[in-house]
Design a protein around this nucleic acid. Structure first.
Lengths: 196, 196
DNA sequence: CCATTTATGGAACGTTCGATCCATAAATGG
DNA sequence: CCATTTATGGATCGAACGTTCCATAAATGG
């Protein structure tokens, strides 16, 4: 059917490489040179395959979100209890303190902070991604209520917002270099507030 | 004593105008054109008076930090109780939801998020500013313990980190456009965690 | 009023930005 | 093997970036 020279790179791997660049450097600060180098393709191929920088970012953010939510969703399903899932998630994140991983932060919260209330798709998608995280937290909270770890009369949506706020704050602390003790203490208190 | 043409602008007001620009647009995204327009002076005057963009940012961040900490310190002193101060601070911040003020966020947390663990003075100063906020929170917590609103055996430093994490997260939520109900619920839970 | 000092406005610097275009390379189906 | 199709590499675009520089304007002290 198709004729012509076949593609010499994997669009999938290229998009993942772009995601890493946006993750490490932010939307605006990620230059097309940075992206091309990491994606290992030519300018022509980038623009032909992904449109432009904004569309490439949207694709990177989409991949990040789906990957993150997929991973968390599976972890939540596999966890012995929803509370165990939440505890482990926050404690493990706090334990990243000082690492390169911690300095990266989370692409979603990074983007939300960078893009704020801007017009345009990148900002919109970042906000929707935060909402998706909150929805997952609410799912976990409701399961924890069913499992008797959280009082059933408590507002699950409110607790989910509380957890999203906590994770956003934790990511900010880690990005600004707070140590494992500080992050761990803050997370311990956050989780205490969840149980009662 | 001094001879020559006198300055035609107030360096103080110019620095405050620059602070507003960095606050609204971020360090990298604030262009010299933006700054000059807001500061109402010429390129020459900017570079002669403030050195360069980095030094101007450091001055803007210094002003923001001193202004914020000064204001919070006075509010804490004047408050009937440290717990009342903390409650009011977080509740009022949550009530900003949806406003232009909320979309701006906090210059310190904005900068910490944008600059992360970069080398260089801007990143360092942003981190130190966060540490200063945590120190103020710890002061408030210790006073609340002395006043009987927080159990004295609880770790004041840990509670301060918890509050800094909460404020950082709250600012992120507000920046990404969460509504007053969501922010208010999250803050209410945060403050509950403080009391016990 | 003049010499001196400093501020000002604007031109210009080299670099980098995202994006476009075109000639060429490389594969295909017929 | 050829006509066709598509990818590739690189030159190039105009705009914007932070910064420097210089001629000029405007005030001062003597």
């Amino acid at each position: 059917m198709t004729r012509g020279r076949p593609i010499a790179f994997s669009p999938d791997e290229a998009a993942n490489a772009a995601m890493q660049v946006f993750w490490a450097r932010g939307y605006e600060s990620a230059s097309t040179r940075d992206l091309l180098e990491a994606m290992r393709l030519s300018r022509s191929s980038l623009y032909q395959t992904f449109g432009n920088k904004e569309q490439l970012f949207l694709e990177a953010l989409r991949r990040y979100r789906e990957s993150l939510l997929g991973r968390l969703g599976r972890r939540l399903e596999a966890a012995p209890s929803a509370m165990a899932f939440l505890s482990a998630l926050f404690r493990e994140t706090a334990r990243e303190a000082g690492s390169e991983r911690a300095a990266l932060g989370c692409l979603i919260f990074n983007s939300a902070s960078e893009l704020g209330q801007h017009d345009g798709l990148p900002s919109q998608h970042a906000r929707q991604s935060i909402a998706a995280i909150t929805a997952l937290f609410q799912q976990a909270v409701m399961r924890a209520q069913a499992e008797g770890d959280i009082a059933p009369q408590r507002d699950a949506a409110a607790l989910a917002s509380y957890l999203t706020m906590g994770m956003a704050g934790l990511r900010t602390l880690l990005k600004s270099g707070s140590d494992a003790e500080q992050a761990g203490q803050a997370v311990a208190l956050l989780l205490e507030g969840l149980r009662r």
